[in-house]
């Protein structure tokens, strides 16, 4: 059996590592999912951290915001890579979907993770009584 698809989460502060802890707690396994923080990192170092974490094989990179230093670094570092998908706006439901579909190619895994993450965002109200 081939290796499960690799993922790298890039975030401000400790969001990425907290998300991985949550995935581990819910899905039971988060091996091959790596956290990177932008805290204290120069733009160049953030790029090289992302490149090293992704490695040479297929992967999905999740970043926390659609804009800003994390997305910028991911796209700058990975622009020539046709085997790496980049997703902005990571959330826990998105990662849980990914965790259970790591046999897929990166762009298919990314597409369904985005759909799951988007479906999970909703305003929730309870009717009284």
């Amino acid at each position: 059996m081939s290796e499960p698809l690799r993922a790298v989460i890039v975030s401000h502060a400790g969001i990425a590592s907290a998300l991985i802890d949550a995935v581990k707690g819910i899905a039971g396994d988060a091996s091959g999912i790596v956290a990177i923080t932008n805290t204290g990192a120069s733009p160049d170092r953030l790029c090289s951290d992302i490149g090293a974490a992704v490695g040479s094989g297929p992967a999905v990179v999740f970043v926390d915001m659609p804009g800003g230093s994390c997305l910028h670094a991911a796209l700058a570092e990975l622009r020539a890579r046709s085997d790496v998908a980049v997703v902005a706006g990571v959330n826990l439901p998105m990662l849980l979907d990914f965790a259970f579909h790591r046999e897929l190619p990166p762009f298919e895994a990314a597409e369904r993770a985005v759909a799951a993450g988007t479906r999970a965002i909703r305003s929730v109200t309870l009717s009284a009584g």
Binding site: H12, S42, P43, M65, G67, G68, S69, H72
Partner: peptide
């Protein structure tokens, strides 16, 4: 700011 346009700015 060497991160140029990013979260703290926007």
């Amino acid at each position: 700011d060497d991160r140029l346009i990013h979260g703290q700015v926007v």
